[in-house]
Amino acid sequence: MSAVQQTQAVTPELRAWIIEQAQAGAQPEAVLASMKASGWNEDVAIAALEETLRGFLDERAKSSALLPPPVPVPDPLPKEGGLPTVLRLPDREVRVVMAMNEPRVVVLGGLLSHEECDELIAQAERRLTRSETVQTDTGASEVNAARTSQGMFFERGESELCRRIEARIAALIGWPVDNGEGIQVLRYRPGAEYKPHYDYFDPAQPGTPRILERGGQRVATVVMYLNDPEIGGGTTFPDVKVEVAPVKGNAVFFSYERAHPSSKTLHGGAPVVAGEKWVATKWLREGVFR
């Protein structure tokens, strides 16, 4: 062993860096070249790469074996042929503002007209109460300190406006209208927020089987922005460090093929700093929601 090899220790920090490069998609050859350029002996670098990546892949394989199986999910974008700029629906053209693959997040421009936004607010406003969340330990709904908004639910197909929006979303994402929950409308006043959470129902919780009787697991979410808050109120995805601005008429779609944190769909509603925020949320299920 050379004197250089003896003095170059493979530290936890180096291993963490190698794993970061692998997670970012860097090829081992590129990582090796970077290490050599930084002064690492080639033999030491190769040994560190092989040992670290072998352990990383073994751990990832073990984790994958414990994951729930993936399920089919809706998607507003075609599987092949490149990213379109406009999606032409039967009653409206919707712009593609941004798209991510992991997680699948698509920001949609002009999903709703400004008149539809105003009408939805008007229909919902008189029925607002303190927002609740579904408790998967019991299957019931209750007020949660993490959600400081007011809200209400429309029944699916309750009004002509609801039917129009539901049909548009179904056409957009290729998912049956009957597999959707009713539209929920929420109002966030200054300081109100919804702390980061997942929309799927935790399979490990005892109340989840009861919830899933009504249509199976949630597989996707569409959040529609009904007004322009002055400051704040974006939809955040902490795992991927993305925040979607709440622009009136726009929407953000995201799907989750596994009911597991590996979906990277942890998301929240950032606090409203000035003004108020109105959103409409549509959750999609695996099967017919009753």
Rank of each mutant, 00 (worst) to 15 (best):
N144Q: 13
G139M: 09
R156P: 02
F154W: 06
G151W: 01
S149I: 00
Q135Y: 08
S141Q: 15
T133F: 09
G157D: 08
S149T: 01
F153N: 09
A146I: 04
T138W: 05
R130Q: 14
G151T: 02
V143R: 10
R147K: 03
Q150L: 10
R130T: 14
T136L: 03
M152R: 14
R130W: 06
T138P: 03
Q135K: 13
Q135N: 12
S131K: 00
E132A: 07
S141R: 12
Q135W: 10
R156Y: 01
F153V: 11
G157W: 13
E155M: 14
D137V: 10
T136Y: 01
Q150T: 13
S149F: 01
S159E: 05
E142A: 14
A145M: 15
D137H: 11
E155P: 05
E132H: 08
S149R: 00
R130D: 11
S141T: 11
R147Q: 02
Q150R: 09
N144K: 12
Q150I: 09
T136M: 07
E132T: 10
S131R: 01
E132K: 12
T138Y: 01
Q150N: 15
R147H: 04
G151M: 00
F154Y: 07
E158Y: 04
T133V: 12
R130N: 10
S159R: 04
R130A: 10
G151S: 05
T136H: 05
A140Y: 03
F154L: 06
S141F: 05
S131V: 00
G157M: 08
A140K: 09
G151K: 00
S149L: 02
T136N: 09
T136Q: 11
D137R: 07
Q150K: 15
S159M: 01
F153Q: 14
T133S: 05
T136I: 02
G151R: 01
F153D: 07
Q135C: 13
E142H: 12
G139N: 03
A145Y: 09
M152E: 13
R130M: 14
N144H: 07
R147E: 03
G139R: 04
G157R: 08
F153W: 06
T133P: 05
Q150M: 14
E155T: 13
A146Y: 12
E132I: 12
E158I: 02
R130F: 11
E132R: 05
R156M: 01
S141N: 06
A140H: 03
S131E: 03
E158C: 02
E158N: 04
R130E: 14
D137P: 03
E155S: 15
S131D: 00
E155Q: 08
E155V: 11
T148Y: 03
G139Q: 05
E142W: 08
S149W: 00
G157P: 07
A145H: 09
T136V: 06
S149H: 01
D137K: 13
G151P: 00
E132V: 12
A145V: 13
T138C: 08
V134Y: 15
S141I: 10
V143G: 11
M152D: 08
S141G: 07
G157F: 12
S159K: 08
R147L: 00
A145L: 07
E158K: 06
V134N: 13
E142Y: 06
D137Y: 11
S141L: 09
S159L: 04
T133H: 05
V134M: 12
R130G: 10
M152Q: 13
A146R: 07
D137G: 05
V143Q: 10
A140R: 06
T133R: 08
